[in-house]
Computed example of a mutant assay.
Amino acid sequence: MIVYGHRGAKGEAPENTLPGFEHAYRHGIRHFELDLVLSKDGIPVMVHDLTVDRTTGLKGGVCNYTASELHEMDARRNTSSWPRKVGIPRLEQLLDRFGDLEHLQLEVKKDSRQRLNVLCNRLTEIIQRRNLYQMVAITSADTWFLKEIRRRDKKIAIGLVAERKFPRPLSIATRLGCTYFCANWKILNKTMVEIAHRRGMHVSTWTVNRIHDMLQMEELGVDSIITDYPTSSRMFFDNRARALLSLPSRGNIPETSELPHPEAGVRSDPI
């Protein structure tokens, strides 16, 4: 199971900030989902909302601030606690910081068509210049934006973000030519996952924070989960894999008649 850190590591560090990504990276996470909005000066910055109100305590739209001004803000409000001030970073700061990330889902929020058009150009240029075709998928619930990305460069992977079962998100994703189907875990079922796979899509599901739900998604056959707690989730799957590897093979398990008698110093009571 591939584990993506949601907004870096939203449940473990301030969301969509470099310290949050660094925290998860130190614990072995190499897959991330993050959100992008265009700054006043036309730079893709990592922030979930179209305003800075929720995470910084300041007021106004992201579109009213330059990337430098956003970087100087303190984005620790209403998110995981952190001892030091952290700003809103540019996408390329993340790309410069980590050279061996395996994959990023870059989610673009709904915005004005004019701003989305500029953001589409910026992202296409960054992906082409850095040759990120294998490392990046552009995802969005905005079908117009996904069409524009596909129109500019058909080699860029795109994914539909689906929150509801209607109106037929898999059909929409197919028409768009998506290679990623990014669905709210509550709407998924085995049939949807199987259809997506037959159509060549990677099924990624959000936001899955309970082990029970992760195992349920694994049973459905999803390819990856997006979670607020990537380090502990990755630890669970790694520990489970190690435990399975350490189990003796059936050929090495003695027959019942060969097992030591309980009175020979071996506990017979349940543990």
Rank of each mutant, 00 (worst) to 15 (best):
G177M: 14
S81F: 11
D228K: 04
L106R: 09
K40A: 10
R113A: 09
M46K: 05
I88C: 00
L259P: 00
H6T: 14
I149V: 14
K109G: 08
T231H: 03
S112T: 13
T66Q: 03
H261F: 12
H6G: 03
Q216V: 00
H27L: 05
E255Q: 06
A24F: 10
I253C: 09
E92M: 09
M73Y: 02
L119H: 06
A173I: 00
M192T: 06
G61W: 09
A196P: 00
A243K: 09
C178A: 11
T205L: 01
S232L: 14
N121D: 15
R115Q: 07
R240T: 12
N189E: 11
G60Y: 07
K10W: 13
S171R: 09
D41T: 05
E33D: 15
V208W: 04
G265D: 00
L95P: 03
T55N: 07
A9L: 02
E102D: 14
S257E: 12
G251R: 05
C63F: 15
G200S: 05
A24S: 11
S112L: 08
N252W: 09
M135T: 12
E107N: 10
Y25L: 00
P262M: 01
F98P: 00
A183E: 01
K10A: 05
D213A: 04
Y229C: 03
L146I: 13
Q216R: 10
C120T: 13
E22G: 02
E69Q: 11
L50Y: 12
D142Y: 15
E255R: 00
T124K: 09
N189R: 12
M201D: 04
K165A: 06
L160T: 07
E263R: 01
L58K: 15
F181T: 05
E163G: 14
Y133I: 01
V86W: 06
R26A: 01
T227I: 04
M214S: 03
C120A: 15
I88S: 05
C178H: 06
E255N: 10
K85Q: 09
I149W: 02
P169E: 14
A264K: 15
D41R: 05
M217N: 00
D111H: 11
V86P: 04
D96P: 08
N78T: 08
P44N: 13
H6D: 14
E15N: 06
T256S: 11
L220Q: 08
P89Y: 07
R242M: 07
P83K: 07
S224T: 05
D238F: 10
R77K: 15
F98W: 12
F98T: 11
E125R: 14
A162T: 08
V208F: 08
G20H: 02
S249K: 13
H31V: 10
L34V: 03
M46G: 02
